[in-house]
Nucleic acid binder design. Structure first.
Length: 241
DNA sequence: AAATCGTACAACCGCACCTGG
DNA sequence: ACCAGGTGCGGTTGTACGATT
């Protein structure tokens, strides 16, 4: 049987995006919001695969993206989160506002792997590079732990994150919490900035803000949690594997 | 100055999962 | 319950560009 291709390859461009294509995509999404990626290219007048449009938008054109070098703090945070989550780049990206999973994945492969190896640490297991040390996924005592333990959105979840790994029930809770960071709450066009702004400002003022609140501040008691992760089981899936 | 090598990152591909009919 | 379509993720590849020889 086989699946039908995600798009008609014969009439789609491939390779690097031109400025013009980017502008078309931006203006379409500003007007209509992110909707059906499959039909978006046609509607926007782009000869691109929907997946390609999505990727381009998420990884490059989104106004809240932070460009430029990763800071030392981000480095360490990525390392810690990778130790906890493994290659769950989207989850890691969710903890780093303005960074995309692709960004982080690339950065990991080009910089951090080498950095860890030079420290004598195996990038996969986070144990000694030469040994067969088990992955350090328990006994979290690091910056990432602090981040998760102290800033977990308590009210998004039936239980608090402080019970990480304590029981089967709590495992589910961990899933819930980690998944919270996976998608931006505001997708409607009116929530997108109308003009481009400096990345740092954009991150704070655009749809990234709810994300940051979810991820880094947590919800105060009684606040409604509009985070789609609490409703969309798909956002929780990645933690269960 | 040219050739080669290494690095960084944008983009593609295939798969897994979810959703709706 | 099943199936097809849509979406998102992680792995991989391609290529531009700077550094080195």
């Amino acid at each position: 049987m086989g699946r039908s291709p995600c798009c008609e390859k014969a009439h789609t461009n491939k390779g690097a995006w031109t400025k013009e294509e980017g502008q078309k995509l931006i203006s379409y999404i500003r007007t209509h919001g992110e909707g059906c990626w499959r039909s978006l290219p046609k509607a926007a007048g782009l000869f691109r695969c929907g997946k390609s449009c999505r990727l381009r938008w998420i990884n490059y054109l989104r106004p809240d993206l932070k460009r430029g070098k990763f800071t030392e703090e981000e480095d360490e945070l990525i390392i810690e989160l990778h130790g906890l989550l493994g290659n769950k780049w989207s989850l890691i990206a969710g903890r780093l506002p303005g960074r995309t999973d692709n960004d982080i994945k690339n950065y990991w492969n080009t910089h951090i792997k080498r950095k860890l190896l030079s420290r004598g640490i195996d990038p996969q297991s986070h144990g000694p590079a030469s040994g067969n040390a088990a992955p350090r996924r328990q006994g979290i005592t690091t910056m990432a732990q602090d981040m998760i333990l102290s800033e977990a959105p308590v009210d998004c979840c039936d239980k608090t994150i402080s019970s990480v790994g304590a029981s089967q029930d709590d495992d589910r809770c961990v899933d819930l919490d980690l998944g919270l960071s996976m998608s931006l709450p505001g997708r409607s066009p009116e929530r997108l900035p109308q003009t481009s702004v400096a990345p740092a400002t954009a991150a704070a003022s655009s749809c990234a803000q709810p994300l940051r609140l979810c991820c880094h501040l947590g919800f105060q008691s009684g606040e409604a949690c509009g985070c789609p992760a609490t409703k969309n089981p798909r956002l929780l899936r990645a933690n269960t594997s």
